[in-house]
């Protein structure tokens, strides 16, 4: 119960970070905070159910996915900066094939 409240707070902070900015790197930081909230939720749920081994296995999977997603996203952000010389998401509203 105690952890659930802090998970909600972390989710609120992450969503605020994503919605309140146009900077692509800050959006990624917001996604990172959301992933941390989910990690905390899974570990707290594992402790609550007495099933920490399964929770740890799931957290390991989450960490692997997090790293890959962040690596690709950072590469995309860098490509956007090279293309438009800006990290502002308002400058990339035109799709280019």
């Amino acid at each position: 119960m105690l952890s659930a409240i802090f998970v909600v707070l972390l989710l609120a902070i992450g969503i605020y970070c994503i919605l309140a900015t146009y900077n692509l790197l800050r959006v990624l930081i917001g996604i990172e905070i959301l992933i941390k909230a989910v990690t905390l939720l899974i570990i707290a749920a594992g402790r609550q159910n007495g099933n920490m081994a399964l929770a740890q296995a799931m957290v390991v999977s989450i960490i692997v996915m997090e790293v890959v997603i962040m690596t690709i996203a950072v590469g995309v952000v860098l490509g956007i900066h090279l293309h438009s010389n800006s990290l502002d998401s308002r400058n990339i509203r035109k799709l280019k094939g």
Binding site: T39, I43, A55, E66
Partner: peptide, 17 residues
Amino acid sequence: MFNMGASLAAVLELSVC
């Protein structure tokens, strides 16, 4: 995580994240 007993995930979180 260490406090909750999830030491394996904690080590990965520290080194990677």
